[in-house]
């Protein structure tokens, strides 16, 4: 009986410490996520906007959408740095695709057999 109470007490103590620990961890997590996620959301939106522009020109690259999807997943699981890196990569891909369209608009003609 006593033993059981003791065990319960110890268990609840451990649980309290753990909860407190988790709460503070979660708090920090929430705060840092909120700051980062604000930056993330706008960066992500800008990269997606650029992807749509490349698509409109007919020059979207194969993996850009995938990168943006991965970035979102990384952000949601708290890997902010990784998420931002993926967004930057996706944005650059679309910049490159748009530059490619511009280059090709005056380059393709020279390849036509005459």
């Amino acid at each position: 009986m006593f033993k059981k109470v003791k065990t319960t007490a110890v268990a609840s103590l451990v649980a309290t410490i753990m909860t407190l620990g988790l709460m503070s961890y979660a708090n920090v997590g929430i705060v840092s996520n909120a700051i980062a996620s604000d930056g993330f959301e706008s960066s992500w939106a800008a990269a997606d906007e650029q992807r749509k522009m490349a698509a409109k020109l007919g020059f979207e690259w194969r993996d850009t959408k995938k990168l943006l999807k991965k970035a979102k997943a990384a952000n949601e699981s708290g890997e902010n740095e990784k998420a931002m890196k993926l967004v930057a990569k996706a944005h650059e891909q679309s910049n490159d695709a748009i530059a490619q369209q511009e280059r090709e608009s005056s380059a393709w003609q020279s390849r036509v057999p005459k």
Binding site: K89, E92, Q93, D96, A107, S110, R111
Partner: peptide, 11 residues
């Protein structure tokens, strides 16, 4: 018109 991919330019 090079057929070789631009390995650096296109990352």
């Amino acid at each position: 018109n090079s057929i070789m991919p631009p390995f650096g330019l296109h990352n």
